[in-house]
Design a protein around this nucleic acid. Structure first.
Lengths: 186, 186
DNA sequence: ATAGTAAAACAGACCGGTTGGTATGCCGAA
DNA sequence: TTCGGCATACCAACCGGTCTGTTTTACTAT
């Protein structure tokens, strides 16, 4: 794997787990096994340009992973529960999640960097659009699908925050269990 | 108002808006209108001790504010929508929320400081317990009330993240509109 | 095949500024 | 005169970023 890709993959995990500011440049370089020269060669804009690249890369990998789960699921309900199941698996194994969220980045960068905020917005939009498409496939109306996809995205992100605060995967499990009842309503 | 209280109130807002690491010590002192001497006089443990104090203070004020809204509302549904309404009001007025959330702190501190994580856990627990009590009052079973209170908390927190990413209050408005349909189901 | 060369891919020393934190000094009230 | 409640001066460590220098790669002319 080439250096640039390795940098992005490693940095993405670190940023997702601990946020942007909390990850120092030296720590980042050490984790990637590179030096400053390499970083500023590939990303002249420094740390922030790397962050943007991470968010864009995340957009692609996330889309691929989630779409894979969605394509092999018969309904939005089962697909959503599968996604949450993956998150719970990661959480129980590693004690942290570095695959499906970026809440730390959103909350600290939304006021600081317009481009970072926009990259995050695009990411959420992408996730919602996958939910949306599947909901339409399930026979939901456009309005309903739009509301529900947003609601699902929000409750999963929020559930993850609760998991982090409790240091447990139970909140996400609860949310996963509630989803079927939620979907019936619409 | 005495110095210590002023420090906590000002710092709380800053930490809520931008997270812990992103707020520098000097910026903090300047915003509070104090010096390092005062900070380390009142909080020998420094920045982190101040953060813990902020979270505990937030626990009290948040409880008071939310309980006030809940006491004057006839049902959980209306109460929850009132809480979200307050958030939307803040968001539209200031462009940011500094009253009802602390997601930035959770995500970046949960792995870093056990005591900070625990303070956040207590905060979420308190919020959920208010929802829970009102749901019981509404005639929900214990199990249902427990699930729904968690679900409401999660979706509100998640909705706020989406608002931050989109720089708009629409996600929270959508969630507020979906809640009645959600409550009917249970 | 080989030597020459230019560009890409790094490495690492160095920089000014900022970080959180400490030690000491001052000053009004009790 | 003692003591809480600060202010000021200062510190080492670290920050993200720039700089110059070296190695590796790719291509070409001979």
């Amino acid at each position: 794997m080439d250096t640039k890709t390795r940098m992005i993959e490693t940095a993405t995990k670190l940023f997702q787990q601990r946020g942007y500011k909390a990850v120092g440049l030296n720590e980042l370089l050490q984790a990637c096994g590179i030096t400053k020269g390499a970083l500023y060669h590939h990303f002249p804009g420094g740390k922030e340009e790397l962050l943007i690249a991470c968010l864009q890369s995340l957009n692609e990998t996330l889309t691929r992973d989630i779409e894979l789960l969605f394509n092999s699921a018969p309904s939005t309900e089962i697909a959503a529960r599968a996604v949450i199941g993956e998150m719970i698996k990661d959480l129980d194994r590693d004690g942290t999640i570095a695959g499906y969220t970026f809440s730390s980045i959103v909350s600290e960068m939304s006021l600081l960097s317009e481009s970072a905020r926009d990259a995050c917005r695009a990411l959420y939009e992408k996730i919602e659009s996958i939910f949306y498409a599947k909901l339409i496939e399930d026979g939901f109306s456009c309005d309903r699908a739009s509301s529900v996809s947003l609601f699902l995205t929000a409750s999963i992100e929020g559930g993850l925050l609760l998991c982090r605060a409790q240091n447990s995967s139970i909140p996400l499990q609860t949310i996963s269990n509630v989803i079927p009842e939620l979907m019936k309503e619409f």
